[in-house]
């Protein structure tokens, strides 16, 4: 995540990081999760699932912040995210100290 300044608690707070779970054969390819993921983590897979839909595929796993939107908007109960215990630091170098 990019900030206009380095957060004051950047040295001890880490933005959450998530793992995306997809049950590809339950997906009906609506694309809601792909379109509304705030971090553009997902894209349509080029493959078809068993139902003949293109399920989402995780293309930027490191960008997921476990916001849970994909899980809430999915009409099929086919995608959700869970916290990734291996948190990664934000990119502090990109923000200059205030």
């Amino acid at each position: 995540m990019k900030y206009w300044r380095r957060p004051l608690d950047a040295d001890h707070c880490r933005s959450p990081h998530g793992i995306v779970h997809i049950i590809i054969n339950r997906c009906k390819g609506c694309g809601f999760c792909i379109n509304y993921c705030p971090k553009q983590v997902l894209e349509f897979s080029r493959h078809f699932n068993r139902k003949g839909y293109h399920p989402p595929v995780v293309v930027k796993p490191e960008a997921c912040v476990d916001c849970g939107l994909c899980g809430a908007i999915c009409p099929e109960f086919a995608i959700w995210s869970t916290p990734n215990p291996e948190c990664i630091l934000d990119e502090p170098a990109e923000a200059k100290p205030a």
């Binding site: 995306v20 049950i23 595929v57 995780v58 930027k60």
Partner: peptide
């Protein structure tokens, strides 16, 4: 780059 899990259960 990311896990796609078939066997897991939706919460």
């Amino acid at each position: 780059g990311g896990p796609v899990v078939e066997e897991e259960r939706h919460p």
